[in-house]
């Protein structure tokens, strides 16, 4: 376990190094992105700007400063917002966590039963439905889906509220965790809770679509595989109820690949909400990432890289740990 953690940290640092190199070698200059044309034409202003943000230091020294900050959990100041990067992330992070978690729960709550039923009733209408949902979910482009949903359910039918986390007229609740559903529930502000929940529906459905497809597909395939195993035939020969065979014998085996996929899918939801957040004006990390990339905001880019890399490493670790719980054959290390 200790050695796993060490490798995990090395992976994160390696990822940061790669991104640092790429960000510094692709064409693009924060000077042009931040300063107006007039200022950018003035060598004195440009030099002052470079000095202010440490861009005049040699590459290796800049990376060293970044690493040093990393050990203190300090990513420096954002070139675009002039605030500590951690403060930006604390502001935008909760919106993304809330959206991704709701999307994740949604895709699990629908995908697992759908995949299981599809495998048990193979080639029935529910299997066909499951196959259609996974095909559409996996292959429909997110931005297209987002626009269509917004146009239909907000524009045409007016069943759902528009973009943003809350109604423009609503007062945001006191910030406790930054997760609106939790904060409003804690404060007992049920009107705002309903408003926040209603705003979550469309973006969560859009974000969940591909994860839902993947989870349905994987659950179905894993269940079909488990149901075709010899031990299932043995279970039938014992005279067990069909229900017991599905939930007691096939399901625990089928969960192994689903857990792996689920972990990665959640990490992907957290890291990959750029498109959805942009269309729904969701003030989350996705949009922050997009903005930082356009602004070539080095400290912000590095912070996001480290956070995303750490997220994936952490998820892998959790997946491995749940494997050890679910599968007695895994050697405990």
């Amino acid at each position: 376990m200790a050695s796993r953690l060490v490798t995990a940290c090395i992976m994160v640092v390696l990822a940061s190094f790669v991104v640092f190199l790429i960000a510094n070698t692709v064409p693009g200059d924060p000077v042009l992105a931040q300063l107006g044309d007039l200022a950018a034409a003035n060598p004195a202003v440009v030099a002052a700007f470079r000095h202010r943000w440490g861009l005049d230091l040699p590459l290796w020294e800049r990376y060293w400063i970044f690493l040093e900050g990393l050990t203190r959990g300090d990513f420096g100041e954002s070139i675009a917002s002039h605030r500590p990067v951690m403060q930006d992330i604390a502001e935008y992070g909760p919106a993304t966590v809330e959206l991704a978690s709701v999307a994740f729960v949604l895709s699990l709550a629908l995908g697992l039963p759908l995949g299981i039923l599809a495998a048990v009733r193979r080639d029935s209408w529910i299997d066909n439905l499951a196959r259609m949902i996974s095909l559409v979910g996996v292959s429909a482009p997110t931005f297209w889906l987002a626009f269509v949903m917004l146009a239909v359910f907000y524009g045409a039918l007016d069943w759902a509220p528009g973009p943003g986390r809350l109604d423009v007229a609503a007062f945001p609740p006191e910030r406790l965790t930054g997760l609106l559903l939790l904060d409003t529930a804690w404060l007992g502000d049920w009107a705002t809770f309903r408003d926040a929940a209603a705003h979550l529906v469309l973006p969560a459905v859009v974000l969940a679509s591909s994860t839902l497809g993947l989870i349905t597909r994987t659950t179905r395939a894993a269940m079909l595989d488990a149901l075709s195993q010899d031990y299932v035939r043995v279970a039938r020969a014992k005279g067990l109820l069909a229900r017991t065979i599905v939930t007691g014998h096939a399901l625990p085996n089928a969960m192994l690949p689903v857990v792996t996929l689920g972990g990665l899918a959640y990490a992907n939801l957290l890291a990959g909400a750029v498109m959805t957040e942009t269309v729904f004006s969701w003030p989350g990390l996705g949009r922050y990432t997009f903005r930082s990339a356009v602004a070539i905001d080095f400290p912000a880019i590095m912070a996001i890289t480290v956070i995303v890399a750490a997220l994936f490493v952490l998820v892998n670790l959790l997946v491995d740990m749940s494997y050890a719980l679910l599968d007695p054959r895994t050697v405990k290390t």
Binding site: D230, Y231, V234, H249, P252, N253, L326, D327, P328, R329
Partner: peptide, 8 residues
């Protein structure tokens, strides 16, 4: 080898 459920 395959007749017993490996996780039970």
């Amino acid at each position: 080898m395959t007749s017993l459920n490996p996780v039970l």
